[in-house]
Amino acid sequence: MIIAVASGKGGTGKTTVAVNLALVLEKVDFFDSDVEEPNAHLFLKPDIKITSEVAVPVPVIDAGNCTGCGKCAEVCAYHALAVIPHPGKKSQVLVFPHLCHACGACSLLCPAGAIREEARNIGVIEEGECGNIRFLHGKMNVGEVLSPTIIRRLKGKVRPDAVTIIDAPPGTSCPVVAAIRGVDFCVLVTEPTPFGLHDLTLAVDVVRQMKIPFGVVINRAGLGNDAAEDYCRAEKIPVLAKILFDREIAVRYSTGDTLADKSPEMAKIFTELYQNICQVKNEADRCS
């Protein structure tokens, strides 16, 4: 089973939930797919064994064969190519590799065959372990934008038979969709604040459209108001766990410490969370 932990709003506790859920499971594969800002390694402290580059193909113009026709810039949806006219001379093509989404249209459609592709590294995937946990995460290079590409490459390392936890990026846009596509269950972590609830409703829209069974974890319960719980009740969304707003948890988090392996009460919360996930998932399977 692949379980993704997402949220909508950032900072609600995705990583806290994902990491501690991993700690209560006997044997698990853990993927931190927040490639723009991975942080699960700060808590799990994995021993990284393998680092592999993530490269994408970007165009290189052969100025000798280029006729300056402009077809490449015309078909580029991301304006990664510009054709500069030079009166009386051949036009010049400029390439902006950072804007390229590596679709391959320019090299495919160049009538002169003057475009070849060159690999450009945009990040790395690191793989290692911490105890029984197989740990992987992606790290995108600063200034890059193709996080979904790195997330898809990372997820290519998911083993079909393993219980897998994917710590998703925040938000509800392309990186999140890339992270949760194809998972068996999605845990949405929220906090009982107006902002937390607002973004939870956006995340719920996403998982419903993607037809992924899901439930909610309310983190920092007791802070703010009951609106998130009221919303879940009204929408018939199962609340899988509640984690109290507790200074001790915040102190532990701030030092990179974990919870479920440190106190029986915390272990119980995350063990029950996993049981609730399995139960809701089974009910969803029966209904479908």
């Binding site: 991301y78 304006h79 990664a80 510009a82 054709v83 500069i84 400029l94 902006f96 804007l99 934008v145």
Partner: peptide
């Protein structure tokens, strides 16, 4: 434009 505004405007 989501990206490439400077390039498009320059052209």
């Amino acid at each position: 434009a989501s990206g490439g505004a400077g390039i498009q405007s320059a052209q």
